[in-house]
Amino acid sequence: MATFKLNVNNKTHTVDVDPDTPLLWVLRDTLGLTGTKYGCGIAQCGACTVHLNGNAIRSCSLPVSAATSGKITTIEGLSENGTHPVQLAWDEEDVPQCGYCQAGQIMTAAAFLSRKPNPTDAEIETAMASHICRCGTYTRIKKAIRLAAEKGGKK
């Protein structure tokens, strides 16, 4: 066990865990932030996506020891009260079915749009291709990202 300082959602936490513990389990089991989900553990499905210094990363494959230097944002900290344009678009397009993968999808979409505010459809597909939604909400995810881009651009 070792002590690590983590900046999560603009709050500093000190956690005492094994250095090889993936960030995912520190978020979920130590800090109680269960919005970030486990889906595969090998960075293939995207359910565990969080932001590290604004980049969408897979928390299931990032040891906590490598996460101490940056700012971590989880779905709980993406916005106050769910008002990020991507979250609003997800609601407006009624994207979720089971909803389990959606926190990860939203985190990737948010990081993507901050880099590329006006993406083409092909760029959306490339950016989101590393995620799996077993319910098949893909057509709505595409629409929601287009909508968020539209509204985000008007801000």
């Binding site: 932030l33 919005g35 009624d94 079915q97 959606q102």
Partner: peptide, 27 residues
Amino acid sequence: QRNVENKSIITGKAKYGFDTRREGMLF
């Protein structure tokens, strides 16, 4: 009508079985 749990899902608040936490619980 939109899914009544949209709001909790998109903010990470919706609790699934995997998110169950109870006093004294072990994994």
